[in-house]
Design a protein around this nucleic acid. Structure first.
Lengths: 155, 155
DNA sequence: ACTGATATGTCAGCCTTGTTGACTTATTTT
DNA sequence: AAAATAAGTCAACAAGGCTGACATATCAGT
């Protein structure tokens, strides 16, 4: 017979069993990003540059609108870092052949080298964390992460 | 007979098998934080407030130095958000009984309610992502995340 | 051919949250 | 009594989000 508060329902800690998972995810992601941050700070780039380069490398030739959609940021935010990546010679732009308004983005050789070096410590961390896991367990983990992005937790 | 470049070793994409994992982790964490962000923006707080409240709730009575260590930020950064949380009545401070220089932090009733409401959508997302998993698989996932924070990927 | 929609780029300013450096106060330790 | 420690504070700066407004090029439909 609890009365819910106007803004928030009355809850007790026992309602949530996943606090361990939440905490683990926080620390895991923190260490994960720190790997690349150490390299980035040496070359005057930040995480935003890393993400852009990562996805341009993952899907060479993707257009700006697609990249915006993947990153979930505004074009003004993207412009700032994309411009620097282009000027520094890590990304090339090319007008679309069908639609010449579109800008297709490609990593340069230097861009590919940089993103690989940024990914390497992250890769090593993941590989080590998977070390004791079987192939089936790897699928379990990937499936969990995949599900995490698909779920809509409203209600 | 590749010559490594002075700054970065020469690599090809085939050297990294964990790009899928990296991408999945990025999207999973993005959605995970977005859950709470939607609530936070309604009450004028940000992620920094969330993290502080989360850990104060997880370990009631922890001192400022411990919190700084957990969060991995400077005391000036913490001060800004901690002050707001105290003034808004979500966290209480108490001088230590042994060492009265120390400030022990406790969530208030309102603080406990808020963090539970922030954690709820995240919990639901995780619970749903684990839905098809067995208990053993849950352990696999938690173990993976735990390993992720322990590994030192240098070399 | 004109007109409106679309893709991108840009300027300006704001906010949050991280940083460094310098300094204060209270308290404990030596 | 002096030094070390825990915490708090002020100021300034940087990264990377955001909004709003507007410019340019190109495409698509009538």
């Amino acid at each position: 017979m609890k009365q819910p508060s106007p803004k928030f329902a009355a809850l007790s800690a026992s309602d949530i069993e996943e606090l361990d998972h939440i905490e683990l995810l926080f620390f895991a992601y923190k260490e994960f990003t720190a790997d690349a941050d150490r390299i980035l700070e040496g070359i005057g780039f930040g995480r935003a540059h890393h993400r852009v380069l990562f996805f341009v490398n993952r899907k060479p030739g993707l257009i700006v609108a697609e990249l915006l959609d993947i990153l979930g940021i505004t074009k003004q935010s993207l412009a700032r870092v994309l411009k620097q990546l282009i000027e520094a010679g890590y990304i090339d732009q090319e007008a679309g052949s069908h639609d010449r308004r579109q800008r297709h983005l490609y990593p340069t050789k230097a861009g590919r080298e940089l993103i690989l070096n940024l990914s390497l410590p992250q890769s090593r961390r993941i590989k080590a964390a998977l070390k004791q896991s079987s192939k089936a367990q790897d699928e379990t983990i990937k499936n969990f992460l995949r599900q995490m992005t698909d779920i809509v937790p409203d209600r």
